[in-house]
């Protein structure tokens, strides 16, 4: 029951930005941006923290969705929605191939292989600059041309909520429970006769598709993408979202996304010292609050409620 309340409140919090949809302006723009990263954050939450798969190629799956949409729509004349879904369907291929290729390796080696892929991909985009635009990037009007910016903002919010609901629901099903078991003890799960290979493959497929579709939505919302947007630090920022926010609670990634995207925005006045503060805040949070922000925020609220009573 407690779990149920937590899920409902998470969805409720996620829907809040719809209240200021008519206001427009900077706040709305940043909120949309936070949500687009939150989609990727939930993917990392699901794949790394809940399914125990050491994957660091989130910027790659996101980029495949984004670049695929532009290439299919602009260069091959496909309809935008078709281009988005087909590129999203192609995104899991990277994760699945990497998983199959590194099936014999363990833990950190798999992380490293996918992390190297995240370093490689923007360089590949630069090398293929005749098609991809490299560092100069590609402009894309996409869905905005048909539905307008405000509607697209609503689509971003609603899709993020749908993604959260899908993951929250999935973790409550038998599949989700087996994935949790795999993340806690892979060998034991195998020993009790569960085909872990099938479940891991499923986890990579779901995560890759949602990340790819998130990337396709990202390029529609921002109207531009270049190799700089998908640098290796993007994958780190995405991974930081559930890590900083706290992976044990459903609303952890929301706090993480606010932290990772808003802290840089707040540090704009001290731009020269931005990386020092960001790095230090980061180290402090990881060292002092290893469970992440969410469990500590929850404890704080409980204490305040107790004091009132």
């Amino acid at each position: 029951m407690k779990d149920h309340y937590e899920k409902i409140s998470t969805v409720g919090i996620l829907l809040l930005p719809l209240l200021f949809v008519l206001r427009g302006g900077y706040l709305q723009e940043v909120t949309g941006y936070v949500y687009l990263f939150l989609i990727q954050g939930y993917v990392a939450w699901f794949l790394f923290f809940k399914s125990g798969q050491p994957f660091f190629g989130y910027s790659v799956t996101m980029a495949i969705g984004a670049y695929g949409t532009i290439v299919l729509n602009v260069m091959f004349g496909w309809p935008v929605l078709g281009a988005m879904f087909i590129s999203a369907a192609f995104a899991p291929v990277v994760g699945v191939i990497l998983y199959l290729a590194t099936i014999r390796a363990k833990g950190f080696y798999v992380s490293m292989t996918s992390f190297l892929l995240a370093i490689l991909f923007p360089r590949l985009i630069n090398a293929l600059q005749d098609i991809t635009g490299g560092r100069s990037g590609l402009y894309f009007s996409g869905i905005t041309e048909f539905v307008g910016y405000k509607t697209l903002y609503i689509i971003v919010i609603v899709w993020t909520v749908v993604v959260a609901i899908i993951f929250l629901w999935l973790m409550g099903t038998k599949t989700g429970k087996i994935l949790t078991l795999i993340s806690e003890n892979d060998r034991l799960t195998q020993a009790v006769g569960i085909n872990t290979f099938r479940y891991k493959l499923l986890a990579y497929t779901i995560a890759g598709f949602i990340s790819g579709l998130g990337g396709a939505l990202y390029v529609n919302y921002t109207g531009f993408i270049s190799s700089i947007d998908i640098e290796v630090f993007t994958t780190l920022y995405i991974f930081f979202i559930p890590l900083i926010g706290g992976s044990s609670l459903f609303f952890g990634p929301i706090l993480g996304a606010l932290f990772v995207i808003l802290i840089p925005e707040l540090l704009v006045p001290v731009e020269r010292y931005f990386r020092i503060f960001f790095g230090l805040i980061f180290i402090l949070v990881i060292v002092l609050l290893p469970e992440g922000l969410a469990p500590n925020v929850q404890k704080l609220f409980r204490r305040i409620r107790k004091n009132k009573e």
């Binding site: 833990g107 950190f108 780190l236 980061f282 990881i286």
Partner: peptide, 22 residues
């Protein structure tokens, strides 16, 4: 574990890159 050190040392790198810029 190795993943934690990976993340922590990246954050340390942010601090020193920031110091370079400053």
């Amino acid at each position: 574990d190795a993943t934690l050190f990976f993340i922590i040392t990246i954050a340390v790198g942010f601090v020193f890159e920031g110091m370079l810029r400053a």
